[in-house]
Design a protein around this nucleic acid. Sequence first.
RNA 1: GGGCGGAUAGCUCAGUGGGAGAGCAUCGGCCUUACAAGCCGAGGGUCGCAGGUUCAAAUCCUGUUCCGCCUACCA
Length: 789
Amino acid sequence: MEKDLASKGTDRHEVGRDKFIDLVWEWREKYGGLIVNQLKRLGCSCDWSRERFTMDDGLSKAVKEVFVRLYEEGLIYRGDYIINWCPRCHTALADLEVEHRETDSYFYYIRYPFQHGGGHLVIATTRPETLLGDTAVAVNPEDERYKELSDAYVLLPVLKKPIPVIFDRYVDTGFGTGVLKITPAHDPNDFEIGNVHKLERIKVIDEDGRMNELAGPYKGMDRFECREKILEDLESDGLLEKTESYQHAVGHCYRCKTMIEPLLSKQWFVKVGPLAEEASRAVREGKTTIYPSNWEGVYFEWMNNIRDWCVSRQIWWGHRIPAWYCQECGEVHVAKEKPLACSTCQSNDLVQETDVLDTWFSSALWPFSTLGWPDKTDELKTFYPTSVLITGFDILFFWVARMMMMGIHFMGDIPFRHVYIHALVRDSEGKKMSKSKGNVIDPLEVMDKFGTDAFRFTLAALAAQGRDVKLSEERISGYRHFVNKIWNAARLVLMNLDHDENAAKEDRIYTLPDRWILSRLGQVSEDISQAIEDYRFNEAAGLCYQFVWHEFCDWYLEMAKQGLYGKDKAMKESSRAIVQEVLMASLKLLHPFMPYVTEEIWQKLPGAEGSIMIAGFPEASEFIRDEDAIREMDLLMGLITGIRNIRGEMNIPPSRKISIAIDVMDGKESGVLRNNMAHIQNLANVKDVSIDSGIPKPEASATAVFGQNQVHVLLKGLLDFAEERKRLRKEITKLEKDIGISNKKLSNKGFLEKAPAEIVVEVKEKVNALSLKLEKLNQNLRFFEAIRD
RNA sequence: GGGCGGAUAGCUCAGUGGGAGAGCAUCGGCCUUACAAGCCGAGGGUCGCAGGUUCAAAUCCUGUUCCGCCUACCA
């Protein structure tokens, strides 16, 4: 707002307080909805009727209530303190609002001559202009160099004023010269030391960052201008011993980046110690859990080192502090409403404090002020404490910590059970987005370009705990393909549905692929639910992706075509019903990540009642669980993949149908393959199949091993024997390596004795299976070596 | 100064004690009747470096280098 005024060549002082506040409200009407619109566009299903703004009436009431109560409890006080002052914004800032930046500067070594007896002390400082406000110099009482200085005085350079040498353990003997100048009115540490030693506080810099009348000859100069001048004067007096370049962190205003001036000032403070202790304990005792847990450490660290919170701001926009000053006797009255008269002198001349409260003060009350507190409302009873707060780490201190303090203090209970610290979205370079850097990604633009579903899914898929998100368009575009895949799969299903009659549950004929996909659906539903409950959104999204694309689309739908396109009416109806069931469940699993496309498809499906938003999330118990089906499908898929490998590696075009001979040992497995012959022919593009136990290997054939069986692909006239030998050797080498690793374990006595039994069994079984496969591959290789071409 | 996180395939990243994974990119083959924004197949990694614990380490511990972030009153 202030920037806007500046661009029109004016400022808030010219506009005036009332008009300024009106303007800010207008501004807020216009732009305040921006984030809400983004959320709506993202499809966030919030209860929008509960939208609140901290300046709303109800919330103002809560702010006054809290302020007065804390004041009465002695947890709010008004006092002199060194605050962080922004000379441009003309306001105090909380410690949190100060940004420290490494700055190239200089260390000036300045001589402070002794008042009596000649000689001088050398003091190193980065801020020579503040020496005008020095009221002492300090040394460490342990420092041998300065032991003799008790009761000594030095003359302040330029002003030639005597100031005492004091002893304080705070001084670091190893830093600089071991002598510290004390400026209680312009440095927080000096302020503390000044209190201990009862030193005078001389303020030499004013609220504009200019030197005031106490700065003598420098009066009216800007602080930086004064620095230059004073250095010149020191130089000419022979008091500047040397200058070293030096780098240190300097505080800047988070809003306007102006260098902060630590200034002595009367401000309102919250005594946070007792509040922080409670808030800290709530997390320590597990009443509130922070995810991921490493943020708990950060939270404790901050809580343990907290200083009082300066809450007054010398700006016009915000909750005006409910304090009134008696113009007659100076008495301070803190109350929710203006008192009729001063309780001390009965004067009616009371003027309200012009300072407003830090915006985070009202934000800290959010979890209960938005629910009607201080009134005892039903909403409070129902919703407090809330289940989860989701937010970014950058406001863990600003907001989360303070909500914890206020919530526990005023409600007697934590404000939320879980705090989920989400990943921060950065640009593709990994830089934090900021308006000044111009690398801000506008979510609305992204959604225009790629669609909301792709955007949402991308965010979820990238949101691994404890890690920030580098958002790039390629990635979003990749997931847009997934949305498209879902749409196309749905098209296939919709095209084949009979909108009038689908098989009732009892009439269904469950094929192997049916039993398999339903079993997998059950497992995956359970895994996805668990992942979401644990805030592992990337895993949940990954599970959806893998299941829908690589199991449902790649295998199941392809196999389901047998039934859907077949002539058998009963089969067809059953197939339609099951395909639809699986699609509907998949849509429900996807819905949290892709609200729009899932709803769109859902509405087109016969039998879907109402919105998918209110459909129940799939549960494992809804689906049949058939472990045999999973094993049998593995066998079938292994066979098909084996044939495809050979086709691919031998460059056999799909137009060429091939013949195969399957050598299957187990009778049951043989039955499974025979029952699913159509799938094998279709998905591996096979014409003739012979299947038997111990079937001889045809001469011109390539072989793949699957499970404990093998399949020979007849390649008469197509087989390059040298190529096949190469292929087999490659696979044999890989197998031998794997077997070698496992055998090494099994020949290790320590492993057999100490490893858990089930692991040992697992390794043994693995060696057996691999050895069997290796033997078959070797047979095949020998076969080709014998018939060298 | 203190703390946290990262370093794994060309790129972006999952994976916290028992067979190195995904997406994208690359290469080869396919317009196969839902989908070329697709299908089928392939190649590719000393898991930053050095030690240690363990039968077993990408995973646990110690040290170290580089990168990022948070925090801090050594003037």
